[in-house]
Design a protein around this nucleic acid. Structure first.
Lengths: 129, 129
DNA sequence: AGTAAATAATACCAAGAGGTGTCATTTATG
DNA sequence: CATAAATGACACCTCTTGGTATTATTTACT
């Protein structure tokens, strides 16, 4: 059922970081995201913790609440967010789902599929807010 | 975790139908697919029944075992197989996973994403074996 | 007729993703 | 100091997908 879509957690992470990037000086609280970004509150809180741990977000000063981007928004590629939240298996499987092609030579889908996934990856690499 | 990949059932269906297309005159049995296509036998059997019901496969003569394509392989687009096995939600969500864009105007990702998914869809539509 | 092989139908099981509840900890503020 | 608000940690629940087991039915073959 999930096809050409990111997992929920990746979607949510992209929403959050894009939202923060709009005003990267501000310190955000969980409440700031909850309603606007349509993410269940408890799940959001869990996700924010995860994003802090992979160093995408941080608490701006020790012992102060809230979140900010951990670096310049222009330096955070979408591909990094996607990988950080688990969707890191791009290109690993062939079109037919085999871990490695059971044929000796690439099948007819190989180049078509390669082209599509390359296009997506380059888009994710070139996008940062 | 599932990103730029079809669901298992779609993968399997594509494997099966592509395999049959190699010799569309032959009558295939479940056993013919099992090992070659790396699909668990019980699951394969269930899937074959599904593919019969959506009219991709059929039992060639009433009261005869086995499966054949229900039509000319050249007329079965990959997109049809993908949709028949449930992965039919292409293009329905925006890049950020919203069911509909919460902005009034398309966001910056809209056209990039559209381009990618259009590319995939046209590939699936133009591929039939 | 009897048996084996293939399929249908159905229920069940397992794992992972998405989501919730609860409690403890930390800091700001009165 | 006491309280409220925000966060962290952790256990737990639910739903879907992928996969298995069981039984019944149908047909070919002897």
């Amino acid at each position: 059922m999930s096809f050409m879509n990111f997992s929920k957690i990746t979607d949510y992470a992209l929403r959050i970081l894009s939202h923060i990037a709009k005003d990267s000086e501000k310190v955000y609280w969980a409440n700031d995201f909850c309603c606007k970004l349509d993410i269940p509150f408890r799940y959001l809180r869990k996700l924010l913790t995860i994003l802090s741990k992979v160093d995408l977000l941080y608490n701006p000063q020790e012992k102060v609440r809230g979140y900010q981007l951990s670096r310049n928004p222009n330096s955070i590629q979408f591909i990094y967010i996607v990988k950080a939240t688990g969707d890191d298996i791009i290109e690993q499987k062939c079109f037919f789902g085999y871990q490695q092609c059971p044929l000796n030579n690439p099948c007819g889908m190989y180049y078509k599929w390669k082209k599509i996934s390359k296009g997506l990856i380059s888009t994710l690499e070139s996008t940062n807010s």
